[in-house]
Design a protein around this nucleic acid. Structure first.
Lengths: 189, 189
DNA sequence: GTCTATAAAGAGATAGAC
DNA sequence: GTCTATCTCTTTATAGAC
């Protein structure tokens, strides 16, 4: 019960945290298939069997690593909406929520990651569509969502040099009119 | 030498074609890692060893399956450029070149597919930038490219319902202003 | 030339020692 | 509770029979 010795539960919690951090980083870097339990354990400096002990299997480890979707926020006007999206992008340009990159890396090849990605995108489409007027609000919202998806994929996952080297504010400034064009029902000319 | 018997070379060519078609379909569906030689062979109705005999290894089979990048075309004015891109999208909406989907499915998780994707996107950025005036032409071109990438990924690979259910012309009509906004140096307001 | 049989390697998962 | 050792499965790739 000495103060200098961590309680068992606390010690375990920290070890779990190290494993999850390592898992997130590796899943984000190489995707679900190529990330091995052994490599995660090595990176977290624990025994591979401990990872299994804590999480049961690889699938559960992945699930735990990509958990915690950021809470959606509402926006009143289309203008606010666009600024909110560009702010999200700004965040994305720097350090995206750590689990999100892990999920995105595997979304095209791992069934569960694909489902999670579709659900997350659907939530964003719902949210956007609620703030956009017009009959085709959902389609517009889906296009805004996929535009941001494409920019994020190109920047964070494919690391296209033009996007990597540009300041986030400059990207946001260039992208603003493209998103604005999708917020109004009559902006398609 | 009878007319009714195919020459050996022709017979082999057709078998190779069946294998490549099966490989393209499977790679496009589940990605490089989950696509097995055995499954490709079964789908093409040949022996797995024959696939190895013809292509050497899995990597070479993938390379052969995703080969044949469509020839780039030039565009004179920014307006023509946007229409050309939307036309490409139209094609993408229907039946994308068969190898392209296979490459895109694995571009985030398979190193060689990632390299191929980066090269293909870089070519498109080069081509677009050459038709856009202004100092930040390359960044604008990269954003136009990633916008189309995002829409294609969302539609073809993630199969978002809003995009799947919308007529291609409607998508093109909504997307046009967003792309137009990126063609001019002063359109960012 | 085509296929059977198998080698070789890697990974997830488990049992049991300490 | 933690780790050693191993099992089992899957897959690529090869060697050699027919």
């Amino acid at each position: 019960m000495s103060e200098r010795v961590l309680p068992r539960a606390e010690r375990r919690r920290r070890t779990e945290g190290r494993i999850l951090d390592a898992a997130r980083a590796l899943f984000a870097e190489v995707g679900y298939e190529r990330a091995t339990i052994r490599a995660v354990a090595k990176s977290a400096e624990v025994d591979p069997a401990l990872v299994m002990q804590y999480f049961g299997n690889k699938q559960e480890l992945f699930r735990a690593a990509v958990r915690a979707t950021p809470a959606p926020e509402a926006a009143a006007t289309p203008e606010e909406l666009v600024e909110h999206l560009l702010g999200t992008l700004d965040v994305k340009m720097g350090e995206l929520p750590r689990g999100s990159l892990a999920m995105m890396r595997s979304m095209l090849t791992h069934p569960e990651a694909g489902t999670a990605a579709r659900e997350a995108l659907a939530r964003q489409v719902d949210r956007l569509a609620a703030s956009i007027p017009g009959e085709d609000a959902r389609l517009r919202a889906a296009l805004m969502t996929t535009i941001l998806l494409g920019v994020t994929v190109g920047h964070q996952l494919l690391e296209l040099p033009e996007l990597r080297d540009a300041p986030p504010e400059r990207i946001a400034r260039l992208l603003r009119p493209s998103l604005r064009a999708l917020t109004g029902p009559d902006s398609a000319g």
